[in-house]
Design a binder for these strands. Structure first.
Lengths: 206, 206
DNA sequence: CGACTTTAGGTACTAAAAGTACCTTATTTG
DNA sequence: CAAATAAGGTACTTTTAGTACCTAAAGTCG
């Protein structure tokens, strides 16, 4: 028990305030989330780990879920869309990235957060993977390049169409349990659905 | 408080057992679920409402979620696929049914259950709406008829392809919060994605 | 009919955790 | 230095799932 938590190194009396304390709490929350997922993120444990108490947390985040989301966001980095010069490769790359992420411990944590948020859309919107706009922008980017190359029809440049592949993959994770989708599923989504959809498109019926 | 719960009518000493008691508990659980959703389904309340106690419940269901799922299943009836003679109408009908259900209080309860189940696929599989096979069978039925009429390509008779529309709609409910998807979303899914996809399909790339 | 077994009822408990109250003490600010 | 602000400490309330254990009916079988 001679194992002082992460206070100021060697601090005897020093008391952190404001941003310094906030960062310490967030770091503690991130560590808990990493080690034990959202289930392990209890307010008491985060407080103890940060060398403070629950009050300090509740002064900054209204509840456990908000803290969990904040911590999760610290762990996700924004990614650049791939640009391989071939639509199919770009699409597969994006799907594989998503698959890797959702299959990782971090993906399991994301599921817990989505669970806990229930249908609270204002919370959900804070999860990068869930932000419709962000996702759509990425897919429109790679599709736009494909259109320029003549690999896809300009009519496919529509958020609903462009994001079909990732939506199908997300569905695998929602409907099935945790495990990784085999690569064959990704290939199937691309070859059976996505490419046929964006290549040549007939006029929609009225 | 002279309001005796649902025991045997007029029973002074009679004590229900076996199936009779099980039904009473399940009915109480269904009522709680209907009135207050899964959040309101506490073991104590169900026990009191059924005129029994928690022990009797735990002898039959291992935990609260299992009871919740059992109660939910009592509330859902299996439906017949539509057969309007027109693919677009059939598809819209199925989507509208799903939209109505997910937008209803029962749909909100379903979300709570999905939340609570997290990624436990063996539990999830017990939810009718989540059973991949059931859903795929329905969609393959209406698509099969459309193929016979020449409205769709035989290559579309593939579970992944056939279910695209409902998967996209489900995504709306997962990503956005609770509210009903406007009918325009359903129409967009049908006209921008689903019909172009199943009508004429180019050969898939290798 | 009477002993035996099974199962329901009653009651109390534990355990976990979120969130709150309230006071003391350190730090900053003017 | 005084006043205001924010952190620390501690204890508490509340809620609910799940468990333990005993008593008393109900069904069963000799």
């Amino acid at each position: 028990m001679a194992d002082e938590p992460t206070k100021q190194p060697g601090a005897g009396q020093t008391r952190r305030r404001g941003a310094a304390l906030e960062e310490a709490i967030l770091r503690a929350a991130v560590d808990e989330l990493t080690e034990s997922g959202y289930a392990g993120l209890t307010m008491d444990r985060v407080a103890k780990r940060a060398g403070t108490n629950k009050n300090a947390i509740y002064r900054r985040w209204p509840n456990r879920l908000a803290l969990g989301i904040a911590a999760y966001r610290q762990l996700t980095t924004s990614v650049q869309p791939p640009d391989t010069g071939d639509l199919r490769d770009d699409v597969l790359e994006l799907l594989r990235r998503a698959n890797r992420h959702w299959s990782s411990p971090l993906g399991a944590t994301l599921r817990e957060l989505l669970s806990a948020a229930g249908g609270a859309s204002e919370l959900l919107a804070q999860l990068p993977e869930q932000s419709t706009d962000t996702v759509a922008a990425t897919w429109l980017t790679i599709l736009g390049r494909a259109v320029a190359r003549g690999e896809a029809s300009p009519e496919a440049l529509h958020p609903r169409v462009a994001t079909v592949a990732i939506v199908l993959l997300r569905n695998e994770f929602v409907v099935r349990g945790v495990p990784t989708a085999p690569d064959s599923v990704l290939v199937e989504i691309v070859d059976e659905v996505y490419l046929p959809l964006v290549r040549q498109r007939g006029a929609a019926a009225s």
